[in-house]
Design a protein around this nucleic acid. Structure first.
Length: 674
DNA sequence: TCTGATGCGTC
DNA sequence: GTCGGAC
DNA sequence: GTCCGACGACGCATCAGA
């Protein structure tokens, strides 16, 4: 019986652990089976069979197994972090393997994966007694213990716990254990895949009358659904329904602790009765789809009314208030950010009009100056994050609300955007410079939308969001209608919310011509290729190339292969030694330096003031250079020579142009002197 | 008490 | 955050 | 269309070590 079998043939009862707890080995065997394939269906089947087996023999270990498979150990909003990286791993591995840290470094260059490094280093420490085989529960518990360590000497304490685990590993276990420690399991199964497997598992192997913590005797026994009696079609329908249910549940209650508990104690059909939208538990935010061609949108959705909103350059936030006026703030990735925004916590009760006693709203938090003028994203990131005192806040913020998901005990997810928007505007009070509804227009005229987009950029926004307000008329093709949901669809990126940013559109946005001057060895899928690649602009006065950013996005596999042959030892285009005319901070240590021989066009969403890069240093800030936010490769400029690359002066001008476009006064005067 | 390295969060 | 690859 | 994992710049929090 092996987990990579067809789910219909797999029989969890045939696996035997002699009544012991789930061996870690069993989980790892599953991961090994998963890594052999790239087929998602196959991956799901392996995980499904693994979870069924644990449910059958050792239900208490289902939850730890789910966490360990999903590359996490707790919901993000609980703030439980391992805090382990290369430093602690190197310490732990060197002390149990005898390999020097230099050797480990070489291994890391070779493999690009800490799990592979640990595996290659081989544990050589002998213990008096053979360590007991690891169990799933033991590994998970140790991870939780590690996450709780804090204060003086944590590095040593964590290192010791990691050492103990490493010593107890057998065979492949060390590879995946290490990967879990650095939160990079890399088995192609993160969120959705795990969720689907969980759904399938509890369809096929259903526990009943089970009480966690009590022995599985006759009174407290497992009932295993007899799948063989079902026709394949009807079973498939059931599995699909369960998938949908789990996804819907997770989107509004993203917490495996609650979900798995419920699945073990109740029939899967009851899941939403227990795990549903709840004040104090973040839902996964709805996302917008990247839109490059507005013309096509208007063609497809002709005659549909849009709500167009400014897309402010700040931080997405989900604000919850319960019936005791307790406010909680969650980030886009469901981290609890309440501590960072005591000013928001204080403000929130003031925005509630009569009869608002609990709610969840979606908004963008943006830095402003004392006059109420919007500041850029970098300003917002300068705020402290922990133990923030109200009196110590120096960077005020403005909340731009755009959606309402819950009000006074009722979920609004299924309501149309128009209804949700009306409630948001009717039941909450705007406070100038503090809390307002996003700037918006309601139109079906493409011209108006274009104009609105232009204004948004001038105002200092990233662009606009275009959202469907009402259910579209019936005469549209079904295919399009399907995607035009006006409900709030948590965790989905669908066509009813379109994201339009200036850098998506050809001809606008910051495009630079740069010279590749160095690179690192790629990891994982990109092992064997150069990735990322260090890029530079040209300073004609000093005749130097100034590092501006690294880039790893926008290259095709084919391009990587060509690049590897273009920059190799054979053709002498790489060297260990940095050239004297490369102006790059010593903190950047690429694996190879390139001959400067070609020019690439790259694009980014913003030019930033950089503490690391030297590009245009002294021209904007005496000690800091400039860099690029979200850089990506566009094409090779075969028509350009390396000295035709963007110059430091041009980059500084671009920076000032960006500032000017956004009407930020303090920089405009300086820009006259560039 | 300060500095630099590391981790982890935002985009 | 962007992007390309695999399904 | 969906999912995943290659990695980007940047800044605060934390801790080791001088």
């Amino acid at each position: 019986m092996s987990v990579d079998m067809d789910v219909l043939e797999f029989d969890p009862s045939k696996i035997n652990w002699d009544g012991l707890k789930t061996p870690y080995r069993f989980l790892i065997d599953t991961f090994v089976a998963i890594e052999k394939t790239t087929s998602r269906l196959k991956i799901i089947d392996c995980l499904t069979n693994m979870l069924r087996t644990i449910t059958y023999h050792d239900p208490e270990s289902v939850l730890p197994a789910v966490w360990l498979s999903s590359n996490a150990i707790a919901p993000s909003y609980e703030g439980i972090e391992l805090g382990i990286g290369s430093q602690i791993l190197t310490k732990a591995i060197t002390s149990v393997s005898g390999a020097s840290s230099k050797t480990l470094k070489q291994y890391y260059i070779k493999y690009g994966d800490w799990g592979d490094v640990a595996y290659a280093a081989k544990v050589s420490v002998r213990t008096l007694m053979e360590p007991k085989p690891l169990t799933v529960g033991k590994v998970y518990d140790t991870f939780i213990s590690i996450s709780k360590l804090r204060g003086l000497g944590v590095v040593d304490q964590k290192t010791n716990l990691v050492k103990k685990l490493l010593i107890s590993c057998k065979g492949e276990e060390i590879r995946y254990l290490t990967r879990t420690l650095v939160q990079n399991l890399r088995i192609g199964a993160v969120k959705t895949t795990c969720l689907i497997a969980l759904a399938h598992a509890f369809c096929l192997t259903r526990p009943t009358n089970m009480v966690i913590g009590e022995p599985l005797d006759d009174k407290n026994r497992l009932f295993v659904e007899d799948v063989s009696k079902e026709s394949k079609d009807s079973l498939n329908t059931k599995l699909k329904a369960a998938e949908k249910l789990l996804k819907e549940c997770y989107a509004q209650f993203p917490n495996y602790n609650g979900i798995v508990k419920c699945l073990l104690e109740h029939p899967i059909e009851k899941l939403l009765d227990f795990c549903h939208l709840t004040v104090g538990v973040p839902l996964r935010p709805m996302l917008g789809e990247i839109t490059r061609d507005l013309g096509q949108v208007f063609k497809n959705f002709e005659g549909i009314l849009f709500n167009c909103e400014y897309k402010y350059d700040g931080q997405r936030a989900q604000i919850h208030m319960d019936t005791n006026e307790k406010v909680t703030i969650f980030s886009r990735n469901l981290e609890n950010m309440t501590d960072k925004f005591p000013d928001v916590v204080k403000l929130i009760p003031q925005i509630c009009l009569n009869n608002v006693n609990s709610f969840i709203l979606d908004c963008e938090i943006v830095a402003i100056n004392p006059e109420g003028i919007i500041q850029n994203f970098q300003t917002l990131t300068n705020r402290s994050r922990k133990n923030v005192e109200l009196s110590s806040i120096t960077i005020p913020i403005h909340i731009f609300a755009f959606d309402l998901m819950y009000l006074n005990g009722e979920s609004l997810l299924k309501k149309s955007l128009r209804e949700r928007r009306e409630l948001l505007r009717a039941r909450f009070a705007e406070i100038p410079n503090r809390f307002t509804y996003v700037n918006h227009i309601e139109t079906l005229d493409p011209e108006e939308i274009h104009l609105f987009f232009k204004e948004s950029i001038e105002f200092g926004c990233e662009g606009i969001m275009i959202k469907i307000l009402d259910d579209p008329p019936n005469n549209l093709e079904n295919k399009i209608r399907m995607n035009l949901l006006t409900s709030y669809e948590p965790d989905k990126r669908i066509k009813s919310w379109l994201k339009v940013k200036k850098d998506y559109v050809d001809g606008i946005g910051d495009s630079l011509d740069v010279v590749p001057i160095a690179a690192w060895y790629g990891n994982g899928r990109k092992a064997g290729w150069w990735s990322p690649i260090l890029l530079a602009i040209y300073n004609p006065d000093a005749e130097t190339f100034e590092g501006v950013c690294k880039c790893m996005s926008g290259f095709s596999d084919e391009f990587y292969k060509e690049l590897k042959s273009r920059y190799s030892q054979e053709n002498d285009n790489i060297s260990k030694q940095k050239k004297w005319y490369f102006d790059v901070d010593d903190s950047l240590r690429p694996d190879a330096w390139f001959e400067p021989i070609e020019v690439w066009e790259i694009k980014g969403s913003d030019i930033t003031i950089s503490p690391v890069y030297k590009a245009a240093i002294g021209k904007v800030d005496p000690n800091k250079g400039l860099s690029l936010r979200a850089p990506r490769f566009i094409r090779v400029r075969e028509d350009k020579n390396i000295v035709d690359a963007t110059t430091s002066k041009q980059l500084a001008e671009l920076f000032y142009k960006q500032i000017k476009e956004r009407k930020v006064e303090e920089f405009i005067e300086e820009s006259e002197n560039v």
